[in-house]
């Protein structure tokens, strides 16, 4: 008995670190909560890594779900690729891949693949930034993940007003509005500052995804004409590349603005 997503992470990385587990399954790995039935990986942005992932997934009988082809050209544009297969107990396994997670710099992404990173799973602070999405439930996870950080980083990132009230007096250098309110002893102002901050993060994430959604409209419309067998690996990949070369802009911001 094994978590299929952890087993797949091991399989993907057997010949070298190319895929780092993120999001919900990373939350499980950090033993924080069991909260996601899908797996998502940050992939090394190379043709070799893409080929290896496609080969591993083909071995599991996977097929593409709606999304970009797993190709470094579209990965570099920020797109994501999505797959699905059934495990040996006929349970649905969904796998998502991207190489440019939002809110992380190129250097931070590169560091995920370095030898210094012990496990192929994103660390708590990286996970927090990946979780700063439009989904409200992610902010509860951020609060719990932040408890695992040193005090100054917890104060910078936590979504828990009580932790901000507890930490802020000892960290006067923090300029976070909620921390300033905490030093003034104003709990309601702390809560309001946190709510404003979360709303800003959610709006920013929503605007980012809207650009991709607009740019993907013609491609997704054409995607609907595929029969599911046409999307099975390995052949499905060539079908998606052909479609994407015609209809999916590599850089959505240029095309979608």
């Amino acid at each position: 008995m094994e978590n299929v997503f952890l087993a797949l992470t091991e399989e993907l990385n057997r010949a070298g670190r190319i895929a780092v587990l993120g999001s919900g399954q990373a939350v499980v790995w950090h033993r924080l909560a069991i909260m996601s039935k899908d797996g998502d990986w940050i992939l090394r942005e190379s043709a070799e890594a893409c080929r290896h992932v496609l080969s591993v997934l083909a071995g599991h009988g996977a097929r593409y779900r709606p999304g970009a082809p797993l190709d470094p050209r579209w990965l570099a544009g920020g797109w994501s690729s999505h797959f699905e297969f059934s495990d040996e107990r006929q349970r649905r396994v969904r796998c998502d891949f991207f190489s440019r997670p939002p809110r992380l710099s190129r250097a931070e992404i590169a560091a995920l693949f370095s030898a210094a990173q012990a496990a192929p799973v994103v660390d708590a602070e990286t996970l927090i930034r990946m979780k700063q999405t439009q989904r409200a439930k992610d902010y509860a996870v951020i609060g719990e993940l932040a408890r695992r950080l040193p005090p100054d980083r917890e104060l910078a990132l936590t979504t828990d007003p009580d932790r901000i009230l507890a930490l802020a007096p000892d960290l006067p250098e923090s300029t976070r509005p909620a921390a300033k309110a905490a030093r003034a002893g104003d709990r309601r102002a702390v809560v309001r500052a946190l709510a404003d901050e979360v709303d800003e993060l959610q709006q920013r994430d929503r605007a980012r995804l809207a650009q991709f959604e607009r740019a993907a409209e013609p491609y997704l419309a054409a995607f609907r004409s595929f029969d599911r067998p046409e999307l099975e690996l390995p052949d499905g990949h060539a079908h998606l590349v052909e479609l994407a070369e015609r209809l999916l802009p590599i850089h959505p911001r240029e095309e979608g603005s």
Partner: peptide
């Protein structure tokens, strides 16, 4: 591992009601 396995079994019951994407740039 056992807890996750049981949870994943149970979670299959909602497959038909899941959102089309939960990660990546189509999640919106």
């Amino acid at each position: 591992a056992a807890a996750w396995d049981l949870w994943f079994d149970l979670a299959q019951a909602t497959n038909d009601f899941d959102p089309p994407w939960t990660h990546g740039v189509f999640a919106g």
